[in-house]
Amino acid sequence: MKTILWAALSANGNYAQSGPDNPPKPEALADFTAHAGQSGNFIVGRRTFEGMQASGGGAVFEGLDIVVVTKRVKEIAGVTVVSSPEEALQYLASRGHSTALLAGGAELHNAFLGSGLVDELVFNVAPVLEGKGLNLVTDQHEYQFKDVELLDCKPLGSGVVQLHYAVKGSL
């Protein structure tokens, strides 16, 4: 199964932290919705999922297989709850999916990267600088350095640029 890690980043490489003062760029949200629709699914951490629900984004994802990875709760209405990245991929494969979209957050992205489970990266880089924030950590486990190959680079609008990479040696 091909696993695509999707993230919105700030121009200085941190995860773009959205909130009332800094809402996500509509172009990035539209791109995520398109990727989720193409995959038919997405994998997300519990806190990120709760943030999606709080912002009213749930209706857009009706009909998709949503998998929440968490060890803290056993059940969340309307989604499948699993306890590990591997279990998330096994579930989606059992449902007939050939691609898994990894939505986030940072802790879950790093767990997938650290386990060598990411085949492609899609970064939507927003035209903002953030002084503090979360980032991808590639020095966990044996995943200390990995070459990537640029597959595509395109503007999405409003200064958002998308970088699409293949993780070398994973496909």
Rank of each mutant, 00 (worst) to 15 (best):
N14I: 00
G157I: 12
F145T: 15
L9Y: 11
E62A: 06
G157S: 02
S55I: 10
F49Q: 03
F145D: 10
A8M: 09
T48D: 04
Q38D: 07
A54E: 00
E149Y: 07
N14D: 10
P85Y: 05
S39Y: 04
V81T: 13
R72K: 15
G159K: 08
A111T: 01
G78D: 11
Q140C: 06
Q53P: 02
V69N: 05
G159I: 10
G56S: 04
H141D: 05
V160Y: 03
P127G: 10
L102Q: 03
V122Y: 03
A100C: 03
G131S: 09
G133V: 10
L171M: 13
A111Q: 12
G159H: 02
M52K: 01
L171Y: 02
V69Y: 05
V81P: 01
P155D: 13
S84P: 11
R46G: 00
M52L: 12
G105W: 01
Y165D: 11
G159M: 05
T48C: 08
W6G: 00
N124D: 08
E86H: 12
V161T: 14
S115N: 15
T33H: 04
V118L: 09
F61T: 02
I4R: 07
G63T: 04
S94R: 05
P155S: 10
G133E: 11
A59C: 06
I4D: 01
M1V: 14
K154V: 10
G40D: 02
G57C: 03
D119W: 04
K74N: 08
S83R: 14
D65Q: 07
Q162P: 07
F123G: 02
G40N: 03
P20L: 08
M1F: 10
L121R: 04
E62S: 07
N14S: 07
S18E: 06
G58H: 08
P155Q: 12
F112R: 08
G169Q: 10
L92P: 02
D139Q: 15
P127R: 07
K132A: 14
G13K: 06
F145Q: 14
A30E: 00
F42D: 00
G157K: 11
L117W: 05
Q38S: 04
S55R: 13
K74E: 15
L92D: 06
T138K: 09
G19I: 05
L5R: 07
A88E: 01
S115E: 06
K2T: 14
V44C: 08
D31K: 11
L64D: 04
L121Q: 11
R95T: 13
C153S: 14
V44I: 11
A166S: 04
Q17I: 07
S10A: 11
A93C: 08
G116K: 13
E149H: 14
I66N: 00
I43F: 00
K2S: 08
L64I: 02
G105A: 02
Y143V: 15
D119A: 07
S39T: 11
T80D: 05
A100I: 05
D147K: 14
S83E: 06
Q17M: 10
S94M: 04
L64N: 01
T138G: 11
P26V: 03
D119M: 00
N14G: 07
L163K: 06
A93R: 08
L117I: 12
P23Y: 00
R47G: 05
H35R: 14
G45A: 02
D147M: 13
P155I: 13
G96F: 10
K2Q: 15
A126C: 09
A77S: 14
F49V: 02
L136S: 12
